[in-house]
Design a protein around this nucleic acid. Structure first.
Length: 960
DNA sequence: CACATGTGCAA
DNA sequence: TATTGCACATGTG
């Protein structure tokens, strides 16, 4: 370790952007509605650097006014950047204020980028004998690295890595860091809009550097290149040199390095605390105070000469939670053991002496494997004495139907937990799980978990039914904020400020050499599995409070948790698929596709890939020149979507063929050929996976395969439905659909009598609407009028504009506007209701469904009209779509319970938003038809009756 | 092999 | 410049 003086130069905007985007899926919004993600992200990084390195010289560098020189060289420099996000613009003044209060020097130079300022300062400091660390994730800085200049890069997931000369050499495959400039010049940089050489990406650039060493040398030797590459690069020599210049960090910015300007001094702690308080950064205050309170006791220099990646979690809640708990006692003093019959101390001793070798205990937590028959019995005894236990199954894969148990982690006391490994032999595993049956089937013990549907499905395969109260942290968070993501890693980072061991770290990336959990050493399994259940338990404490605050406890207890069991059963049940039928369908489609292909190639005069939008666009609009001014997509390609091609279809036979080709190819690849591959060998059926926490409105979604988008609108497409068949000839499929549920909901919620009356009278609502808005008697409504009325009826639910409506119909903009205006005159309360929703959202920041399911709309007061408009449409749509989702969920739970209680053989199989599909045992048909219709229609009572259409058939198509 | 893009299926 | 989703083929590096 040298005592050379050290200077840290922080690239402010790079860290601010990085911080902002790190939170992009779960932005930090404080109670005033401000997005503080960027400030939080930046401050976390800065404090981290200070805490780790205790720098005595440090400055934070900002851009100002961009790089005048580069824009002069290349007018499009950074021109394709999106506007700086609102959340970043508002963050900068705060950050400046905080830095001032922290007494941290700030560097800016008008007309220069932070890169250039940092580069210049680093070189000057080097001359004065300083070691400089450039704190930035931006790889462009690698060009500046020297013996005394390093990059100090934040790593995703926490920690930093230092790049010196050896790291840069390795990373970029260069001998001299200066060659990084050539590298960037060759491959270009999309974010800075540096063009680079055409066709040259990372791989090619590295190859060129290895052979030619520099841009200049490459351009001087292009005769050695071959083919397309040669042509393209020879034509772009100027572009290459320009790109290199743009990528070069300038070292002649008019700034001076005077060491005393960069000295850090004691921060104004009260002032900083005050700002953090205003921003509602509670955890950051602790972190900040700790960082500076420890200043004097911390070692002064932590950087080693060689680079290393550290991944040490920051202060974790575990440390706090388990402080004082006995490190090597099996059960913490606080564990509720009152039901324990045997003396506690005796048990501890037995377990401790025999099994400490499988104990993973650090200063902060205590995780243990339970690895013998004796230990297991004692362990289970304790398990049974708990009132609430978190568990997490580890299995050989993600598919619960074929997955085998590798182990189960349990925890009931924060900071501690136990891991029960499972033997590989099936009968032995079954023996072990039998010992746990009393626990899982106990009605008294609450079970806590993250995504319990998975664990329940796995255990069901071992013939274990999980009973008792459930708490699923994923579902809890879904209700707390449905727009966010809910996987455990994100939740741990957001709520516990802790990054758990990632599964990838344990078993590798999926694909090539991914390990099975079974191959992971027991110690690692234990640490990973118990950490997850420990974290889940901690999250439960957080969410229990928040559920109460958000008033969604009832929704959680009465809807989402019961539904979880229903879905687990439906998924395990699966549905029978007639694969032979699909195979014959596939052959027929293939025939037609080949014929269309021939015709299209003949008309086009060449063969090309019709399924490639890129190639198709070029054939249609460059070769055949079908249109004067073809529309382009946002990336500059020709748009060839259905709505655009349809306009051209009447004039060009080839377009008709292309549209038909597209339709058939889609059908074949997405459904007819894909579905048979999804049949589980084990059951011979198709098992979709319902996602309960994906759709922001409260709907379910369906996965692997998606059974919620099986075609129905076209004759050819709807054939696919014939492949969904009953279990056997003793069964029929029954489909039960809510008729117009969303319109009924909006009618009821808005109290729009005209529409309510129409529903009460059992009218055809679209015809009824047409009759009113076009002012004709009901029986004289034309097909076209009804069609337009139907489009508006649906559009209203989504917040359609005149523009949107005219796009969807044959109406002009003017006609569309008139239709919408008349519509609102016909149904005035509908409009009032919509405005009321928007106002509510503005006042409260959220909207809610009939059951109180919330959706937060942070953009509802945005100054950006486009963004705000989208939020306003959500304010109208979310309560409607969400209430419909609530209602069918109630129906599902009630029907499931009745089917269970009545011991029916019939099963609920699928949910498609407003439809339920059942496999009905024929003798039960009559009884269940009534039961299903009654339960669905009675799931939620409003001023508008719900109407359910029930039909049966030998396949799904016939059941409609 | 991973990712972005364009397209299109459902309610 | 209409809501919520999922998945396919292509193209790229």
């Amino acid at each position: 370790m040298s005592d050379q003086k050290r200077l840290f130069l922080v690239d402010a905007y790079a860290l601010i952007f990085r911080g902002y985007y790190a939170f992009i899926k779960n932005p930090r919004i404080n109670s005033k509605g401000e997005d503080t993600s960027a400030i939080m992200g930046f401050m976390n990084s800065l404090l981290d650097v200070i805490k780790r390195e205790r720098p005595d010289h440090l400055a934070v560098c900002f851009d100002k006014g961009g790089s005048a020189d580069r824009v002069e060289m290349f007018s499009e420099y950074k021109a394709n950047r999106d506007a700086t996000p609102e959340g970043i613009k508002t963050a900068v003044p705060y950050i400046l204020e905080i830095l001032k209060a922290m007494h941290i020097p700030i560097m800016v130079k008008e007309g220069f980028e932070a890169d250039d300022v940092i580069g210049t300062l680093a070189k000057k400091a080097e001359k004065e004998g300083y070691k400089t660390y450039m704190v930035t994730p931006d790889k462009d800085f690698a060009q500046l690295v020297s013996e005394n200049i390093f990059m100090y890069r934040p790593v995703f997931g926490g920690g930093y890595e230092t790049w010196g000369i050896p790291e840069v050499q390795k990373k970029f495959e260069v001998t001299d860091p200066l060659q990084v400039i050539d590298f960037l010049g060759m491959m270009g940089d999309a974010s800075d809009n540096i063009p680079g050489l055409p066709g040259v990406g990372e791989k090619t650039a590295k190859k060129f550097l290895a052979t030619y060493g520099s841009m200049e040398n490459l351009l001087a030797n292009t005769h050695e290149l071959k083919g397309k590459m040669k042509e393209k690069i020879e034509a772009s020599k100027e572009l290459g040199m320009l790109s290199k210049k743009l990528a070069t960090i300038m070292l002649d910015v008019p700034v001076e390095f005077d060491a005393k300007d960069f000295e850090m001094s004691e921060p104004d702690i009260p002032k900083v605390t005050e700002i953090f308080q205003e921003l509602e950064f509670r955890r950051l205050i602790d972190n900040f105070v700790k960082t500076f309170a420890l200043e004097n006791s911390a070692p002064s220099n932590q950087l080693s000469e060689t680079s290393k990646t550290e991944n040490t979690p920051k202060a974790t809640p575990k440390e706090e939670a388990s402080a004082g708990a006995g490190q090597f006692s099996l059960f913490g003093a606080s564990a509720p053991l009152s039901n324990q019959s045997a003396p506690l101390s005796k048990q501890n001793n037995e377990l401790e002496t025999e099994y400490t070798r499988n104990t993973i205990a650090t200063t902060s937590h205590f995780y243990q494997s339970v690895a013998s028959g004796m230990a297991t019995q004692l362990f289970i005894k304790n398990l049974m004495s708990q009132s609430s236990v978190c568990f997490d199954t580890e299995t050989t894969g993600l598919n619960p139907i074929e997955a085998q148990l590798v182990g189960i982690a349990f925890s009931w006391d924060i900071g501690k937990g136990f891991y029960l490994p499972f033997p590989e032999a099936k009968n032995e595993a079954q023996e072990l799980i039998e010992q746990l049956r009393p626990f899982f089937e106990s009605e008294q013990i609450e079970k806590v978990g993250q995504n319990l549907k998975y664990d329940i499905k796995v255990l069901r395969k071992y013939n274990i039914k999980v009973k008792g109260k459930l708490f699923d942290t994923m579902l809890a968070h879904y209700l707390i904020n449905p727009d966010m993501r809910h996987n455990m890693d994100v939740l741990a980072e957001t709520y516990l400020n802790y990054t758990p061991v990632s599964i990838t770290e344990l078993i590798g990336k999926k694909g090539k050499n991914q390990l099975s959990m079974r191959d992971v050493p027991l110690e690692k399994q234990t640490e990973y599995a118990v950490e997850d259940s420990d974290i889940t338990l901690q999250l439960k404490e957080h969410f229990t409070k928040e559920l109460g605050e958000a008033n969604t406890q009832k929704l959680f207890d009465d809807i989402e948790i019961p539904l979880l069991r229903v879905l687990a059963d439906m998924e395990l049940e699966g549905i029978n698929l007639d694969t032979e039928f699909l195979n014959s369908l596939s052959e027929a489609l293939n025939n037609d596709i080949l014929n269309l292909e021939k015709e299209i190639y003949a008309t086009a005069g060449e063969e090309f890939n019709i399924a490639s939008p890129k190639q198709l666009g070029i054939v249609l609009f460059e070769r055949l020149k079908l249109v004067d001014k073809p529309k382009k997509t946002k990336t500059g390609q020709y748009a060839t979507s259905e709505d655009i091609l349809s306009y051209l279809a009447k004039d060009h036979e080839i377009i008709k063929h292309i549209l038909e080709y597209r339709g058939l190819a889609k059908l074949k690849s997405t459904y007819v050929d894909a579905l048979p591959l999804q049949v589980e060998p084990e059951t011979g059926r198709v098992h979709t996976d319902y996602m309960q926490t994906v759709a922001a409105t409260g709907r379910l979604s369906s996965n692997n395969p998606n059974l919620q988008n099986i075609p129905i609108r076209t004759e050819r497409g709807r054939q696919v439905r014939k492949a969904f068949i009953p279990r056997n000839e003793d069964y029929v499929l029954l489909a039960a659909d809510y008729s117009q549920i969303e319109l009924r909901i909006i009618a009821a919620l808005s109290e729009e009598e005209t529409m309510i009356e129409a529903f009460k009278n059992g009218e055809d609502i679209h015809a009824s609407t047409a009759s009113k808005v076009f002012n004709v008697p009901l029986e004289e409504v034309t097909r076209e009028q009804r069609g337009n009325a139907k489009t508006v009826n649906f559009g209203i639910i989504y917040g359609v504009s005149a523009f949107g409506l005219s796009n969807q119909t044959d109406l002009s903009r003017g006609e569309a506007k008139e239709l919408i205006d008349t519509y609102y005159e016909t149904y005035p309360k509908l409009k009032a209701y919509m405005s009321k929703q928007v106002d509510f959202a503005r006042d409260h920041g959220y909207v809610q469904t009939v059951l109180g399911r919330r959706r937060y709309l942070k953009d509802i007061n945005s100054r950006n009209a486009v963004v705000r408009g989208a939020a306003e449409r959500n304010a109208v749509n979310a309560p409607i779509q969400g209430s419909a989702a609530d209602i069918i969920k109630i129906a599902m739970i009630n029907i499931y319970n009745k089917l269970e209680a009545g011991n029916y053989k019939s099963k609920m199989l699928l949910q498609v938003h407003d439809e339920l599909v059942f496999d009905i045992y024929k003798p039960e048909l009559e009884e269940l038809t009534t039961l299903i219709k009654t339960e669905m229609e009675g799931a939620f009572i409003m001023d508008v009756p719900l109407d359910v259409e029930v039909d049966t058939g030998v396949n799904w198509l016939e059941a409609h």
